[in-house]
């Protein structure tokens, strides 16, 4: 609607709604000894998200609060955090779904804390880029469609949005930083499923390691928290079956030999 005035009916409102919710937000600044919680009250509407509430705190109450965010629709992966001890994307988590009690907000775990809700994603990318998965894949959507002239074949972005929620939730990553982890293994599975230009053999070898596909304890926490249907646990199962079957084949003289 092209409207000359500021529209009313804000479904994500953070003031004037009469319904106040308490937030307990983890705070930390460089030089602090450890994080502490700070409380804020924010008014919410039925569709106000945790991200809306946190940016309203920053805007209206406390300009020192920092957090990561970008796309607002679960496609960039920057606003991953732990809300009431569960890994979520703040941009698609509605406050009213969380019950009436105080909403506890912490940064994702198992990554270096920069400040407040911001973590350094360098460790995540170190593991994620090990398999060198391209960003675009062959499109599997709408199979009935014809590809138009001039387009070599439909492509689309990989589902993984690199949010780090799977690494935050994984009980193995929490105890052993050497583990390649669910995001990297899921990316490896995608490369094997659709190799494109990649060297599938070296990717498979990379996963055949005590700190890779064989390290997972099948907690399935990664798949439970993934906001983008990547199913890292399923990918790890796929890799194990593939590795086991290649070993059997190599014993009988077919398949890959390492």
């Amino acid at each position: 609607m092209s409207s000359p005035v500021e529209p009313a009916n804000d479904t994500h409102a953070t003031s004037g709604t009469g319904r106040s919710v308490r937030f307990r937000v983890s705070r930390f600044k460089q030089g602090d000894r450890k994080p502490h919680y700070q409380e804020y009250a924010v008014e919410v509407a039925p569709e106000t998200t945790v991200l809306d509430a946190l940016t309203a705190i920053r805007r209206d109450q406390d300009p020192t609060l920092i957090l990561r965010h970008s796309c607002y629709h679960a496609s960039c992966g920057t606003c991953g955090m732990r809300v009431n001890d569960t890994e979520v994307l703040a941009c698609v988590t509605e406050v009213t779904e969380l019950g009436g009690g105080p909403v506890k907000v912490d940064p994702i775990a198992n990554q270096r804390l920069v400040a407040d809700l911001v973590t350094d994603m360098v460790d995540f990318y170190d593991k994620f880029t090990a398999v060198d998965q391209p960003l675009v894949r062959g499109s599997d959507a709408i199979p009935a469609a014809t590809v138009p002239p001039g387009v070599p074949g439909f492509t689309r972005f990989e589902n993984c949005i690199e949010c780090g929620l799977c690494l935050s939730a994984c009980p193995i990553v929490a105890t052993d930083p050497r583990y390649l982890g669910p995001a990297g293994l899921a990316a490896a599975q995608r490369v094997l499923e659709e190799p494109r230009e990649a060297d599938a053999f070296s990717v498979l070898r990379l996963t055949d390691d005590p700190q890779a596909a064989w390290r997972c304890h099948l907690a399935f926490e990664c798949t439970a928290v993934c906001p983008s249907n990547v199913d890292p646990a399923g990918a790890i199962m796929f890799l194990r079956r593939r590795l086991a079957s290649d070993r059997v084949k190599s014993i009988f003289g077919s398949g890959w030999r390492p």
Binding site: S2, S3, E6, T11, H12, N159
Partner: peptide
């Protein structure tokens, strides 16, 4: 985009880019 479809958009003017409504 990925497993989503994004529909847009509308247009109005405001003075405060920190306070953007999502009108019903």
């Amino acid at each position: 985009q990925r497993e989503l479809s994004v529909i847009g958009t509308s247009s109005w003017v405001t003075d405060d880019p920190d306070h953007l409504a999502v009108p019903a």
